[in-house]
Amino acid sequence: MARRAGFLMAAAMMTALAGHADQLPDFSQFDLDDDGLISEDEYVSHQTGTRRANESEALAKFTRFDLDQNHTVSEDELRRAVDAWRGTDDDTSVSATDLADGQ
């Protein structure tokens, strides 16, 4: 019975993920000043304001999203993070957990 419950949970999670497979997180939720970039302050403010992470966790996640280390995250970097989460891009260090927590 426990094996079946585990399988059903995994199937439910995969179904939920598949339903959003073609969607990126809404960039405008993070880009509060609408300059086309997510600043460290914007990201940390969003994450702490929605209680998805404390400040140090949000800073650590932002650092992993900021692939070119210029202290901002572009839409391309966000797309690459989503691709890494989906397993279609192996050149980033963003994990599925990071991305899920970041939405």
Rank of each mutant, 00 (worst) to 15 (best):
H20A: 14
D66Y: 10
A21M: 08
G6Q: 13
D34F: 07
A100P: 00
R52Q: 07
D22E: 06
F62W: 12
T72C: 10
V82A: 14
V44K: 11
G19M: 12
T48S: 04
H71E: 14
S74C: 01
D76R: 08
I38K: 03
Y43L: 14
V73Q: 02
L59G: 10
D26S: 11
L8I: 07
A16C: 10
F7A: 11
T63S: 12
R4S: 08
M14C: 12
T63N: 10
R80Q: 15
D89Y: 15
A12L: 13
G102R: 00
V44R: 08
D34Q: 14
L78T: 01
L37D: 12
S28T: 13
D22M: 06
A18I: 07
L8N: 02
L24W: 00
D76S: 08
T48L: 05
V94A: 03
D33R: 05
S56I: 10
A5W: 04
E40F: 05
H20M: 14
R79H: 09
A12W: 07
D68P: 03
L17F: 12
D35G: 03
S93T: 14
M14R: 11
A21H: 10
T50W: 02
T15L: 11
E42M: 09
S56N: 11
F27Y: 05
T72Q: 13
D89G: 01
D22T: 06
R4P: 02
D76P: 00
Y43G: 03
M13A: 13
D101Q: 15
A10P: 00
S95D: 03
A53K: 05
D66L: 12
I38R: 01
E42T: 08
T97G: 06
A10F: 08
D68S: 06
D89I: 03
S56K: 13
R79M: 11
H46Y: 15
Q103E: 00
D31W: 07
H20V: 11
D31R: 06
I38C: 05
A2I: 10
T63F: 03
A81K: 00
A53M: 15
G19P: 01
L32F: 01
T97K: 05
E55A: 15
T63G: 02
